[in-house]
């Protein structure tokens, strides 16, 4: 994290409702360069909505989102596309293109967003991205042949191939066994170290939060209830927060 430098993501007074359901009710959050911020919250609390607002997949009712110095929701389509190339988004269910094999999944965004790359350069970039996620031998496999953990890794590799400055992870460990979850947590840290990315990690997995987050933000009832280090956030008697901790870390006698 670069102290004093402007945040790479700055969210101010963000409101979003779906009909009568007010999901976000005035969110403020800053993320700095090379910083991992974990957003914790219950299912349906609006965590995924928050990162979809960051990449303008959704429009806010009020508030502003500034990413890499640009007001996301005021950009024209071409400017937004240019910004999106600098932001990687790892989906909860990986969202791999199931008609393409692993190699094609990585090649597709690269070919669509860069011109003048030779076949050799494309192959090298794919190889580098696959090596970065530890799946260098998976070129020809179809998404349906991959395990949940492998799909997550390929999803992350697909975003890394465009060399983003910011990564947004939506529930990176959801549905994975503890060992694979640990590997994904490690991968998130490696991505930050290798590519110097700032990240928002959406999760309700406290092990993931503790392993990957420099800061933790607790999203409850549409607001950031507590923001700070993992220990600071959980140093409270608020039952809405202690409930999280007790479920995730059961202490044995």
């Amino acid at each position: 994290m670069t102290a004093g430098a402007p945040p790479v993501i700055s969210i101010r007074g963000l409101y979003k409702a779906f009909g009568d359901l007010e999901v976000l009710q005035g969110i403020d959050l800053d993320v700095h360069k090379a910083e991992n911020v974990v957003v914790l919250g219950r299912s349906g609390s609006g965590k995924s909505v928050l990162i979809k607002l960051v990449v303008a997949l959704l429009k806010p009712d009020y508030g502003e989102v500034v990413v890499l110095g640009q007001h996301v929701h005021q950009l024209k389509q071409k400017e937004l596309d240019a910004l999106r190339r600098r932001v990687g988004f790892s989906f909860q269910h990986s969202a791999l293109y199931d008609s393409m094999n692993v190699s094609e999944n990585l090649e597709f965004p690269l070919r669509m967003n860069t011109s003048g790359l030779s076949t050799g350069e494309v192959r090298d970039r794919i190889q580098q991205a696959l090596e970065a996620v530890g799946l260098a031998q998976s070129h020809k496999q179809m998404p349906s042949e991959l395990s949940g953990g492998q799909r997550k890794r390929i999803g992350i590799a697909r975003t890394l191939i465009l060399q983003p400055e910011i990564m947004l992870y939506d529930e990176p460990t959801a549905g994975l066994d503890p060992v694979t979850s640990g590997e994904i947590n490690e991968l998130i840290q490696q991505v930050r170290e290798k590519f110097h990315t700032a990240s928002i990690i959406i999760t309700h997995d406290l092990t993931c939060a503790r392993a990957t987050g420099d800061r933790v933000a607790m999203l409850l009832d549409g607001q950031m209830l507590r923001v700070g280090s993992f220990d600071e956030v959980f140093d409270t008697q608020d039952p809405r927060i202690t409930g999280f901790y007790k479920y995730n870390f059961t202490e044995h006698p």
């Binding site: 997949l57 988004f89 989906f91 269910h93 969202a95």
Partner: peptide, 25 residues
Amino acid sequence: AELGSMKVTEQIEAMEVSAINPFKY
């Protein structure tokens, strides 16, 4: 079915965030 499946599995959103226009493609 193909596009519906792509929609519900977020593949269309994945194109959007990769700066690819899914409508055009």
